[in-house]
């Protein structure tokens, strides 16, 4: 295995760990709420044994809360399952715009913890590329993480997927312009193994508060 491939394998494993850790944290939050609801029911049973009536309205609220949390857990687990299967095929047709939305959903808590917000409008025409879905997910996350490492603009960071003659392009726009735009936070992306694997090209426009990542398709069949 070449050095780059080894680095990419390790980076990929690290990314998988980061995502599964945040997902497991979310599941724990769901479990904590379900656990407290169960505890609340136990408290009501204990009070009923001492002569207090069952509060029907409160019990209905508990039931609604549990149903809500089950739906939330199902949503989280569906995303986790999709992520787990993203490495199944070496190469497949992938919708880049839709993958952007998926990464934002997968890393929802991490994004929230950064106090960041992303606005990802659906492209007028689907941006389809043939690549490895897991690595596309990873490169998108690295770009989002770099965008979040900058001082937050106080408004959502706009991410647009676009088709160009050279391949699909990710545009991170509406970031804080001028002094607050940290070129160094983004420029380090170019040294990452995943960028090399994609043959990705980074262009920064600090005065516009924008950076673009062109994902060359030269390695898509690997």
């Amino acid at each position: 295995m070449t050095d780059t491939k080894q680095t990419l394998a390790m980076d990929g494993a690290r990314f998988f760990g980061e995502m599964t850790a945040t997902i497991s944290h979310e599941i724990k939050n769901v479990m904590a709420i379900v656990n407290e609801n169960a505890g609340l029911l136990e408290d009501m049973v204990a009070m009923n044994r001492q002569g207090a009536p069952f509060p029907a309205e409160r019990i209905a609220k508990v039931s609604q809360s549990v149903s809500r949390q089950i739906a939330r857990a199902d949503d989280i687990l569906q995303a986790m399952n999709r992520f787990a299967h993203s490495a199944d095929h070496g190469s497949e047709a992938v919708d880049v715009g839709e993958t952007l939305q998926f990464v934002a959903k997968l890393a929802d808590r991490l994004i929230m913890m950064h106090g960041a917000e992303f606005d990802m409008p659906t492209p007028a025409k689907a941006v389809i590329t043939t690549t490895n879905c897991f690595f596309l997910t990873y490169v998108i996350w690295r770009c989002m993480a770099a965008a979040m490492a900058m001082p937050q603009p106080g408004a959502p960071i706009r991410v647009i997927a676009e088709t160009t003659p050279e391949g699909p392009c990710l545009i991170f726009a509406d970031m804080d312009k001028g002094e607050k735009f940290s070129t160094s936070a983004v420029s380090s992306l170019e040294t990452e193994a995943i960028f090399e694997w994609f043959g990705a090209r980074l262009t920064i426009f600090p005065e516009m508060g924008e950076f673009r990542v062109l994902l060359s398709e030269k390695r898509r069949e690997e």
Partner: peptide, 12 residues
């Protein structure tokens, strides 16, 4: 930051 957790836990 989980409002539902706060509500139930504080009630208990």
């Amino acid at each position: 930051d989980e409002e539902e957790y706060l509500e139930i836990m504080s009630e208990r």
